[in-house]
Design a binder for these strands. Structure first.
Length: 298
DNA sequence: ATTCAGGTGCGAG
DNA sequence: CTCGCACCTGAA
């Protein structure tokens, strides 16, 4: 089965740019679990080749999840008006925003706090095997809130969650008891939803923004992690240290509803380049100035 | 052995 | 309200 795509959509970049932890890539494509199936995806000239999914409804869901209908060309042409992104985009073009399951996304990013990517993947994998339902040979669904709510802390610690274990269980209990409703949060206005998410244990500004962006697809969200902070300081603030608050304000005024896309390109680029931690210059040879770039329209 | 990693919750000024 | 600090734990 093939799902049609329009350029500049890039499957590998989309699933590798850090918004989801469940996909594994190799030479031939990406594999992961979707709709309780082990699926394999590969991007070809004709579109996204899908193996492992037969139900038409699941294919529609996959299409939706992958963001295949986004007007990426228009988005990127807007982003090209920014002096920094104009240099970066040739290396990052095609990143789409996924529409992940909010619960899985929330747990994933609670676990991501002060952690590293291999261990985040390890924890999520163990969590899924320990508490998810075996839906096929070697395939587990992501555990439901009720399942994690009833877990022993000791069991959770076996997933190498460390000090995040109680956060995960507390959040699971809030969901399982109905005290918090993620779909209701998804209906709220941006700042209200953000506030509701931040009220959860283990969820601060950054994790809340990740859920808003990667699950609810709120384009205004601009998650500021250490990498994005570094990128923005280096390329938009002449290398000066600024607070996360200042970065948020900058992103909102500079990118408006496309802030989330901008974040993805900055994040992907500074990490892809490797040693983003050192004093490497701006992409290519121009140095961006905060005031000189034209603002993107709201 | 020591260090580092996609933040958050706390207490103190 | 801003600022500094501790923090589970696997991997290099």
């Amino acid at each position: 089965m093939v799902l049609p795509v329009r350029p500049p959509y890039d499957l590998c970049r989309t699933v590798q740019c850090g918004q989801a932890f469940g996909w594994r890539t190799d030479n031939t494509g990406v594999t992961g679990v979707f709709a309780a199936r082990r699926v394999r995806l590969a991007q070809t000239a004709g579109g996204i080749l899908v193996e492992g999914l037969s139900d038409e409804r699941d294919l529609v869901r996959l299409r939706h999840y992958l963001g295949l209908d986004e007007p990426l060309e228009a988005v990127e042409s807007e982003l090209m008006r920014d002096r920094v992104l104009r240099r970066i985009l040739p290396h990052t073009s095609g990143i789409a925003l996924l529409r992940q399951n909010p619960w899985e996304c929330l747990v994933s990013f609670i676990i991501s706090a002060f952690n590293n990517i291999p261990k985040i993947e390890l924890s999520l994998d163990r969590l899924t095997r320990q508490f998810g339902d075996g839906v096929a040979e070697g395939v587990w669904s992501f555990p439901e809130p009720a399942r994690l709510a009833g877990a022993r802390l000791k069991e959770l610690h076996r997933c190498a969650l460390g000090y995040r274990a109680p956060y995960v269980r507390q959040v699971a209990r809030l969901m399982a008891s109905g005290r918090v409703d993620l779909s209701a949060i998804g209906q709220m206005p941006f700042h209200e939803a953000r506030h509701a998410l931040q009220a959860l244990p283990g969820v601060g500004e950054k994790v809340a923004d990740c859920v808003l962006l990667f699950a609810y697809r709120r384009g205004e969200a601009f998650p500021v992690d250490v990498w994005v902070k570094r990128a923005v300081e280096r390329w938009y603030f002449h290398g000066r240290r600024v607070t996360a608050r200042q970065i948020q304000e900058f992103a909102r005024s500079q990118f408006g509803p496309l802030a989330g896309y901008a974040q993805q390109h900055l994040f992907y680029y500074i990490r892809e380049r490797g040693n983003g931690g050192t004093r490497e210059r701006a992409p290519a040879r121009t140095r961006a100035r905060p005031q000189s770039g034209r603002r993107l329209p709201r």
